[in-house]
Amino acid sequence: MDILGQVLARVGADPNVRGVILTGSRARGLETARSDYDVTVVVAAQDRPWRHDTRTAVLDEVVGTVEALADTSVHWNRYSYRGARVLLDRLDGGIAELVARQATFSPEEAREHARDNLDNYINQLYRCVKSRRDGFADAAGLDEVESLPWMLETVFALHGRLRPYNKYLAWELERFPLPEPWNTALRPDRVGTAALRLFPEVEALARRLGHGEEIDSWGSDIGLIRAAA
């Protein structure tokens, strides 16, 4: 019996278990010989929302409640459910619905996330161009690198999407393409040095989607960024 079969046999006998979810590389078909099985066991109740049950080289098993799986307020872990496979669903499709909800922004969430990250992206680019202007080339380079995560969060949110983990960026763009030029511009082999260069395109997209006020709040500083880009 394989690892997933062992897990399902073990937890399936527990009446407290409501679902089993496979995430990570094996769910997405990107596993290597060293990939473990990332499994989430969903239970009706336990003494805390989440706990790590098993962590070995073969199996990484987390146990969480149905209520915890329904909580989308913790952003950093939501992309883990993108491409997840539901192996057991005793809620008649309810576990699958909660997984899909974790992996998908609502329009309101996307707008708020885009706004917040756009501001952080501009802030970091402003630091970059000031350092470059004042002769601090190494600091400018670090600032530009630091702006890249903010840019990725912004662009994906502007498209109503969660930003993928870096490991899955290529998979995301291949499986769920963005409109061009973004699908090409954000490829892992291109985007690493593009945070400043892409600012005019990010600005145009953000303004088209109603975020001009956030950009204009930076006043004349935006001109400095545009000139450097």
Rank of each mutant, 00 (worst) to 15 (best):
A57H: 12
D89Q: 09
V191S: 04
G24H: 09
R26N: 09
T184G: 10
E180L: 12
S73C: 03
A33K: 11
Q124L: 13
G192D: 06
V74Y: 12
S25L: 09
A157L: 09
R90D: 06
A44T: 13
D47R: 12
S35L: 08
P177S: 11
R34Q: 09
G192A: 10
F156I: 06
N117A: 00
V86K: 03
W76I: 12
R175Q: 13
I3Y: 00
A68Q: 14
R197K: 12
D53L: 11
G93C: 08
R34C: 01
L69F: 13
R85D: 05
T23N: 06
L22W: 06
N120D: 11
W76M: 07
P200G: 02
G29P: 05
S35M: 11
D89W: 08
A103N: 09
F136T: 00
D116V: 12
W182F: 07
D89P: 14
W50Q: 10
R197L: 12
G212A: 11
L152H: 05
H113G: 01
C128A: 15
D134I: 00
R226D: 15
P181T: 07
L98D: 00
K167L: 11
L30W: 02
P164S: 06
R175E: 14
T65G: 07
L158V: 04
V86G: 07
V74M: 04
L173E: 10
F136D: 11
Y79C: 01
A204G: 10
R207W: 03
L125F: 06
L88S: 06
G212S: 12
A103I: 03
V62A: 04
S217E: 11
V202E: 04
Y81I: 04
R26I: 11
I122T: 06
R163S: 11
R34A: 13
A170R: 15
E153V: 01
L152K: 00
D189Q: 14
I215E: 04
R226A: 08
L69D: 07
G212N: 08
V39F: 02
Y168I: 09
Q124Y: 06
A68S: 11
G223T: 12
A157T: 05
V86S: 05
A9K: 13
R226N: 13
D221T: 13
S131L: 13
R90T: 03
L148G: 06
D143S: 12
A13W: 01
L125M: 10
A204C: 02
D216N: 13
E31P: 02
L186M: 10
G160T: 06
M1T: 12
G64S: 10
R197Q: 13
T32Q: 10
L125T: 04
D47I: 12
L173S: 05
A227R: 14
A27C: 08
R207G: 07
D47K: 09
G12T: 09
G135A: 08
R82W: 11
A194Q: 14
D221H: 12
A227H: 09
A57K: 07
T32R: 15
L22E: 09
N117V: 00
P188Q: 03
R10M: 00
C128R: 12
S131A: 15
N16T: 10
L125N: 02
G29Q: 10
L169A: 04
F156A: 00
L224A: 14
Y168G: 00
A13E: 14
V20N: 03
E201G: 01
A140E: 01
M151Q: 11
A84C: 08
I222V: 15
L4P: 03
G135I: 08
G223C: 01
W150Y: 15
G5D: 13
H211T: 08
